[in-house]
Amino acid sequence: MNYRKDYIPKGTANNRRPGLAMNATTITIHNTGNPSSSAANERAWLTNGTNSRTASFHVVVDEREVIECIPLNENAWHAGDGSGASSGNRTSIGIEICESGNYAKTLDNAATLVASMLKERGWGVDRLRRHYDWSGKICPRLMYDGGAWTGWGLFKAAVQAKLNERVADSNVKKDVIVSVVVNGKKVTDGVLDGGTTYTPARAVAEALGAKVTWDAKTKTVTITKEDV
C-alpha cells in the first residue's frame, strides 16, 4: 500500500494542529464514522472551510493508501479526553480506519500499518487503545459488536500475527529471501524453505488480476478471478 505524508498546515482552523510536542506511548484506533469516505477525503476534511470541529488525527488508512496528516511527534485532538499531559490527545497516535470500499482490505492494511509502527518502536499489542478507552465513545464502532468488542479482539490478533511474521522475517537468513516476479514485474519477496517458496498470497493474486478477501473469523483467504 502507498504511504504518503500530507500535513495540514500549522494554524489550520479550530486549532486542529496545535503543534504541541508529543512522545507517544500508545496507538489509538478509530473508525471514521463515515461509510462513504476515503482516506483522501478524510484528509481533505481537516482543511475544509465548512468543518468547524476541533478534532484531528495523525494517520488515516483505506483500501488503497495511508496518509499521515499530522507528524507523529505532535499531538492531535482525537481521543476526546481533554488536553492534560497524560491524556490520549497528548500521548497517543490516532489512526482512523475508513469504512468505505473493501473494508476487509482496509482492515488488513491497517493491521499491517500498526504492526509496522509497533515493531519500529519495540512495542507489543498491549500498546493499542480504542477511542473508547479514553472517552467512552463507541469507537472504533465497527469493532463494537453490541458491547462484546469481538472485532477489536480480532483486529489485535491480526496485528499480533503480522508482528510475528515480522519477527520471523528478521530471523530469516538473507540468502533464502527470493524475489517473486509476475509477468515480468517484481511484486514481492518470498522465502525459500526446503525447496518451497512461501510468499504473500495477496501480492501474487492481485498481480494476476484476482480479488483477495480475508475472513478473520474462519481465518480463510479467498482468491477469486473472473474468467475473461
Results as ranks from 00 to 15, higher is better:
Thr47Pro: 10
Lys119Glu: 13
Ile70Lys: 09
Pro35Glu: 07
Ser38Lys: 13
Val176Ala: 07
Gly19Lys: 10
Leu208Phe: 06
Gly122Met: 07
Tyr132His: 13
Ala216His: 05
Gly33Val: 01
Thr112Asp: 15
Asp227Arg: 12
Gly184Ile: 02
Val191His: 08
Ala40Thr: 14
Val167Gln: 11
Ser87Thr: 03
Ala216Pro: 13
Asn75Ala: 05
Val228Gln: 07
Gly153Trp: 03
Thr213Val: 12
Val191Pro: 03
Thr26Ala: 09
His58Arg: 10
Glu96Gly: 02
Lys174Asp: 14
Val221Asp: 06
Ser56Leu: 02
Ile138Leu: 11
Val60Arg: 06
Ser56Gln: 07
Leu208Met: 13
Pro9Leu: 09
Pro18Trp: 01
Val114Tyr: 06
Asn23Gly: 04
Val180Leu: 10
Thr32Phe: 00
Val180Tyr: 08
Ala44Val: 02
Tyr198His: 14
Ala24Pro: 15
Val204Gly: 09
Leu113Phe: 15
Pro71Ser: 09
Asn15Arg: 12
Thr25Asp: 01
Glu63Ser: 12
Ile177Gln: 12
Val182Ala: 07
Ile29Ala: 05
Gly147Trp: 02
Ile67Pro: 14
Thr54Glu: 13
Asn15Tyr: 14
Gly19Leu: 07
Trp149Thr: 05
Arg64Ala: 11
Lys162Ile: 02
Ala158Cys: 06
Arg129His: 09
His78Thr: 02
Ile95Gln: 06
Ala168Phe: 08
Phe57Ala: 03
Asp145Lys: 06
Val60Asp: 11
Val114Lys: 06
Gly184Tyr: 02
Trp123Gln: 06
Glu96Tyr: 08
Gly19Thr: 13
Ala157His: 08
Leu208Cys: 13
Ser92Lys: 04
Asp81Phe: 00
Glu206Pro: 12
Gly82Ala: 05
Glu65Arg: 06
Gly209Arg: 08
Val114Glu: 05
Arg64Lys: 15
Ala24Glu: 06
Thr218Lys: 14
Lys105Met: 06
Val181Met: 12
Glu226Asp: 14
Arg202Ala: 15
Cys69Arg: 03
Leu46Cys: 07
Cys139Thr: 04
Val59Cys: 11
Val191Gln: 10
Val114Asp: 09
His30Gly: 10
Ala39Asn: 10
Ala115Asn: 10
His30Lys: 08
Leu208Trp: 02
Gly146Asp: 08
Ser179Leu: 00
Val181Cys: 07
Ala13Trp: 04
Arg64Met: 06
Ile177Glu: 12
Ser86Ile: 01
Leu113Pro: 11
Cys98Pro: 07
Glu165Ser: 12
Trp77Pro: 00
Gly184Asn: 04
Thr224Val: 14
Arg166Lys: 12
